[in-house]
């Protein structure tokens, strides 16, 4: 009974670690690392639900009866691409922020903004 879900629980722990890094840390690069861990864990969650015990990879071949579900795989392929796109854009922003503010720490940037106002 309990073992039936343990895989999902580990995934949830991973997701929450990523989520924690995003909201609790002040370093812009680290936030993006956290974001990508968060997203990757969601991918793992999707892929976990596609698995069937005794199934194989969804490539048709003679003599195989049971395949894992291909649809989540497709969705996650798309989502991975979206993830890297977000990471690239986020890092580009971080680089520009470093150039403009001379820092990539959230607090320092906020302080500099407050001085401007």
């Amino acid at each position: 009974m309990l073992l039936g879900h343990y895989n999902y629980w580990i995934v949830i722990v991973l997701m929450m670690i990523g989520f924690y890094i995003v909201i609790a840390h002040g370093n812009l690069i680290k936030k993006i690392v956290g974001l990508s861990i968060f997203q990757t864990s969601v991918f793992i969650f999707y892929i976990s639900m596609a698995k069937i015990d005794g199934g194989t990879a969804p490539i048709l071949a003679e003599g195989i009866e049971q395949y894992s579900n291909p649809l989540p795989h497709v969705l996650i392929l798309t989502a991975i691409v979206v993830g890297i796109a977000t990471t690239a854009l986020g890092l580009a922003l971080a680089v520009r922020i470093k150039e403009a503010y001379g820092s990539i720490e959230e607090e320092e940037i906020q302080n500099k903004d407050n001085l401007d106002c």
Partner: peptide, 27 residues
């Protein structure tokens, strides 16, 4: 291990490859 070979291929090239590279350059 979860039978998602296509996804694994992509994640290996993106998660372990491109995004790490971009992070290094950004750093």
């Amino acid at each position: 291990a979860m039978d998602a070979v296509d996804v694994a291929f992509t994640e290996a090239s993106v998660g372990a490859g491109v995004s790490t590279l971009l992070m290094l350059v950004a750093i």
